[in-house]
Amino acid sequence: MTAAQADLQAEFLEMREGLRIDRPEVADGAALWRIAKDSGTLDLNSSYSYLLWCRDFAGTSVVTRDVSDGRPVGFVTAYLRPDRPRTLLVWQVAVDATHRGRGLAARMLDALTARATAEHGVTGIETTITPGNTASERLFTSYARRHGADVEREVLFETGQFPDGSHDPEVLYRIGPLSL
Rank of each mutant, 00 (worst) to 15 (best):
M1R: 08
M1V: 07
T2F: 02
T2M: 02
A3P: 10
A4K: 14
Q5S: 14
A6K: 11
A10F: 11
A10K: 12
E11G: 06
L13V: 15
R16W: 08
L19H: 09
L32T: 00
W33Q: 10
K37S: 13
S39W: 05
S39D: 00
G40A: 05
S47I: 14
Y48F: 15
S49I: 15
D56F: 15
S61A: 11
R65S: 01
D69N: 09
G70P: 02
G74V: 04
P85W: 04
P85R: 13
T87E: 01
L89T: 11
V90W: 09
Q92M: 04
V93K: 08
G103S: 03
A114V: 01
H120E: 02
H120F: 15
T123R: 14
G124S: 14
E126V: 04
E126I: 00
I129G: 06
I129Q: 01
P131Q: 06
S136I: 03
R138T: 15
T141N: 06
Y143Q: 07
R145L: 09
R146G: 10
H147F: 08
G148A: 14
D150Y: 07
V151G: 02
E154L: 11
E158M: 10
F162G: 04
P163M: 12
P163D: 13
D164G: 08
L172M: 13
I175E: 06
L178S: 01
L178R: 01
L180T: 10
